[in-house]
Amino acid sequence: MPPALGNVTSKMLGDAGEHYALSQLTFAGKPASKMPDGWAGYDLAVETGQGLVRVSVKTRKETANWKAGSWFIFDERLECEWLVFIFLPVSGAPRAWLVPFSLARELGNKPRATRKDPHNRDMSFAKLNREPLCRYENNWSLIRDL
């Protein structure tokens, strides 16, 4: 029996985020392909017209205590060119920011030395909604310098 609508697993949410990004990129004229599950470093390969780029997709959904969470977490050791941060609110359409990996690494919260995984960075929802990152919302054309 399939899970109830409210019981979406983190795997299901992640897969849905990847497929959402895949379709939006392709609709924007950037044909994309999903990598196999478990592929290291990135989730999508995208043809930009100037060659393939690697894209990692991070998906979160709004929950009762989402403001207390660390938000989007990404590994600063990733080998990709773009990060897609997808937020699924309780009501309304998904929101997405397509940010060059180098900019996300620069602006993401730096991990403390005591962190269990010191290579993980956090990107807060607040930062995504402020300059300069707010300019990258719905950047499906993958424009680097906005």
Score class of each variant (00 low, 15 high):
Glu137Lys: 13
Tyr136Arg: 02
Asp15Phe: 08
Asp15Ala: 14
Gly41Ala: 07
Lys67Thr: 12
Asp117Glu: 11
Trp39Val: 06
Ser23Asp: 10
Val57Trp: 03
Glu131Ser: 13
Ala45Arg: 05
Ala93Gln: 13
Asp43Ile: 09
Lys67Glu: 14
Pro132Val: 00
Asn129Tyr: 03
Lys127Ala: 11
Lys116Gln: 13
Asp145Trp: 09
Glu81Trp: 01
Met12Lys: 06
Asp117Ala: 12
Gly108Gln: 03
Gly49Lys: 14
Pro132Ala: 00
Pro94Ile: 01
Asn65Asp: 13
Thr59Ile: 08
Ser91Glu: 10
Pro89Tyr: 10
Lys30Arg: 15
Asn109Asp: 14
Lys67Ser: 12
Ser91Met: 08
Phe74Glu: 00
Thr9Ala: 07
Trp71Tyr: 15
Glu131Ile: 06
Thr9Ser: 15
Ala45Asp: 07
Asn7Ser: 13
Ala45Asn: 08
Cys80Gly: 03
Tyr42Arg: 01
Phe87Tyr: 13
Ser33Cys: 12
Phe27Arg: 12
Glu81Ala: 05
Trp39Glu: 09
Asp37Lys: 10
Pro132Lys: 04
Gly92Ala: 11
Ala45Phe: 00
Lys58Asp: 05
Phe101Ile: 01
Ala126Thr: 12
Asp145Cys: 09
Lys61Glu: 09
Ala68Trp: 08
Ala16Glu: 09
Ile86Asn: 08
Lys110Trp: 01
Val8Asp: 02
Gly6Cys: 08
Leu22Asn: 04
Asp43Tyr: 05
Asp145Ser: 14
Leu78Cys: 01
Ala16Tyr: 12
Gly92Gln: 10
Leu83Met: 12
Ala28Glu: 02
Pro31Asn: 08
Asp145Ala: 08
Ala64Trp: 14
Glu106Asp: 05
Ala104Asn: 05
Leu52Gly: 02
Trp140His: 04
Leu22Gly: 03
Ala64Gly: 15
Ala68Phe: 13
Gly69Asn: 13
Glu76Tyr: 01
Arg112Leu: 13
Lys11Glu: 15
Ile143Thr: 13
Arg95Leu: 12
Met123Trp: 03
Thr9Phe: 00
Asp43Asn: 12
Ala32His: 08
Leu107Met: 13
Ser124Tyr: 09
Ala45Pro: 04
Val8Asn: 04
Val84Gln: 06
Lys30Ile: 06
Asn139Asp: 04
Gly14Cys: 04
Asn138Ile: 02
Leu52Gln: 14
Arg95Phe: 09
Leu83Ala: 05
Asp37Trp: 12
Tyr136Val: 02
Ser33Thr: 14
Trp71Leu: 07
Leu133Val: 02
Lys58Gly: 00
Pro89Gln: 06
Phe101Val: 02
Glu81Gly: 09
Leu142Ser: 03
Trp71Glu: 11
Ala16Leu: 14
Tyr20Met: 12
Ala32Tyr: 04
Glu76Lys: 04
Lys34Glu: 10
Tyr20Val: 07
Gly29Ile: 14
Asp75Pro: 02
Ala32Met: 07
Asn138Gly: 05
Asp75Met: 02
Leu5Asn: 11
Asn129Gln: 14
Asp117Arg: 15
Val53Phe: 02
Ala64Tyr: 10
Val99Cys: 07
Thr114Cys: 05
Pro36His: 04
